[in-house]
Nucleic acid binder design. Structure first.
Lengths: 119, 119
DNA sequence: TTTAATAGTTTCCTAAAGGAAATTAGTATC
DNA sequence: GATACTAATTTCCTTTAGGAAACTATTAAA
């Protein structure tokens, strides 16, 4: 019988696991990446514009997700003093840094579908 | 009053949204990326080895997630005919293509933590 | 004055994710 | 014969995610 001693994980490794957790908690769920991707394409958009483009999202969900993304400094929310009030959402500089990651996610997903289906 | 006509999303855009969905469904959850990341570092590993390294995972969860990853051709499961049975898990070639993506996720997460905390 | 658009919030419900603890079954050591 | 290690599976439970529908409040057009 072999007793396997466990080396404790290195600090670097623990940091990396935490980084994965941070990123995935932010991006997990059905809508968040779609919201960010839509804003990447569309620039500044209003609530109803987002709601229409993200076909099928419930207003509660959109509202909640936007709040969470704002808390994390990925988007800004600006209330315009127009006649019927309008609210504009756009990505922050920090939010735009998700561009590369989203491209990777898309590329991997496209390739994965090929891999799974045709073999 | 302006009526905003909606152009239907382009085929390319629909494909991209589907690719995001595919990738995120596969990687979402508390443990899957950690399992893949661990196998990327550790090469071939046994069930109990994984369980010890992924500090805190319930055996049921590990078992379920491994099955799901195997179904998606990201890992292989090999039963060894040893005295107490051993089972080895390792990444497929396809599974290893997640390397880049995971690096991006880690890098973004590290940077995000700086961005949020110190400002 | 009814209708519609603005941007949400509230309530209620279902489904999925995930954890804890016990169990299984084969083999091997004490 | 009791204990322990292998790799799970089973049962039960709580938490979280997310959807549907109704509602609020303001403004403006028909």
């Amino acid at each position: 019988m072999k007793i396997q001693l466990q080396e404790p994980l290195s600090k670097e490794c623990i940091q990396q696991l935490r980084a994965i957790k941070d990123t995935m908690e932010l991006l997990s769920g059905k809508w968040k990446i779609q919201i960010i991707g839509t804003l990447l394409r569309g620039g500044t958009m209003r609530f109803m514009e987002l709601k229409r483009t993200l076909n099928g999202i419930a207003p509660k969900k959109l509202s909640n997700d936007l709040q969470e993304l704002e808390l994390n400094k990925l988007i800004t929310r600006t209330v315009k003093d127009t006649k019927p009030i309008t609210v504009e959402y756009s990505l922050t500089k920090h939010g735009k840094t998700l561009d590369n990651l989203i491209v990777e996610i898309i590329d991997w997903g496209l390739n994965h579908r090929k891999e799974i289906i045709q073999k």
